[in-house]
Design a protein around this nucleic acid. Structure first.
Lengths: 201, 201
DNA sequence: CCGTTTCAATACGGTTGTGTATCCAATACA
DNA sequence: TGTATTGGATACACAACCGTATTGAAACGG
């Protein structure tokens, strides 16, 4: 039972992995199917045996990466919800730890967001993904709020939207100017102020 | 003196304009030179008579758009610095009014940021542009702080970085989900809290 | 006016990328 | 052990795109 029909899904996985790297390096349009196959160690024959087109692969890659991201989150959630530390430490920690490679994740994520801004179908998929992603964060926030003495004066969902916005905007700056904006600096200096403002004991 | 050597720069301008639109629609790599020429009403002959390559055009386009953006800013600055209203109204107003088409600007800007994250040369250019952009904002903030009774407990530059981060992160959400996140909503609900926190009378 | 220069159009060659059709090896199955 | 099936490699046909070389027309200068 080494290779019954496992082989197929293994090459699929390697192709997806290769696509992730190549897309991060050259972008969605800039990467050719051949580039992806080279990276994965296959030829285009293998590719078209597994995917109908590059667009199809992009969609599959999106599904796969977001699935993995949500896995990571659900794995980290219970720990963060109970562990000592502030609410913000938990949320920001989750945002940081969920993706192993911040740079690659940012490149892919931005690339797909751009794609979604041009394609309604991709927009639907992305919005769905981001919605459940924010829901997880919202649950975490509400859980921590419940167990602590805090109370938020704004809906938790709204607060999460802000944290995500700051995180993404700050990440872009950090990746562009790592020295001027150390990763997490903007979040950690300003978000506590917001939390202070929206929480009443 | 209708067309001495003005014609050349006119076609250059039309090509740049066409490139802006096409890049916004299909992305940098997704747009072919022919696409751009079609949009501008020329053939590729005109293109290669004016630009050496698509990369060169991209750089020229970046220069042109950022130049125009800085013009807009310097035109708006004196008005905003003196006009009544809060500090945040001024800064956010500037961010909104500087670019006529928010969606197009966001697409192009994000596209170029992505490009810069992969190409050191483009990164240099982008960092420079963003630096003087932030400097203008910082001047505005300091000017307003000076004329009012406010005093900031954090460097103005740092504060501007946060505002920019929130603005860009929020804009991405607004463009993706216009109904769930009306343009400017996140900024206007949360940034006043931060300003409160960092200002002492 | 007539040559000259300028600028965009046209024509062409070559490269790159896509998708399909066929082939070949390894495994599953009888 | 022989046959069928599966999955990836190879080969090919075709389309898109790039960049250059050449041409044609319009403005300019004498």
């Amino acid at each position: 039972m080494e290779t019954p029909k496992r082989r197929r899904s293994a090459t699929r996985a390697r192709l997806l992995e290769g696509a992730l790297e190549v897309f991060a390096e050259r972008g969605f349009h800039g990467a050719s199917v051949e580039d992806i196959c080279d990276r994965a160690g296959f030829t285009r024959g293998a590719f078209y045996s597994n995917f109908g087109s590059k667009d199809e692969l992009v969609l599959a890659l999106f599904e796969a990466t977001t699935d993995r991201l949500l896995e990571q989150i659900t794995a980290l959630l219970p720990e963060l919800a109970t562990q000592p530390g502030t609410l913000l430490d938990a949320v920001l920690g989750l945002l940081d730890d969920a993706a192993p490679d911040q740079r690659q994740w940012h490149l892919i994520s931005t690339e797909f967001t751009l794609h979604a801004l041009r394609s309604p179908d991709a927009a639907d998929a992305l919005i769905r993904q981001r919605t459940v992603f924010r829901q997880r964060l919202t649950e975490l926030v509400e859980e921590i709020v419940r167990t602590s003495e805090l109370q938020l004066s704004v809906p938790a969902d709204q607060f999460v939207r802000l944290v995500v916005a700051v995180h993404e905007g700050a990440r872009a700056q950090s990746l562009l100017e790592p020295d001027a904006v150390p990763a997490g600096s903007l979040e950690h200096t300003f978000l506590p102020m917001v939390l202070d403002a929206v929480s009443r004991p």
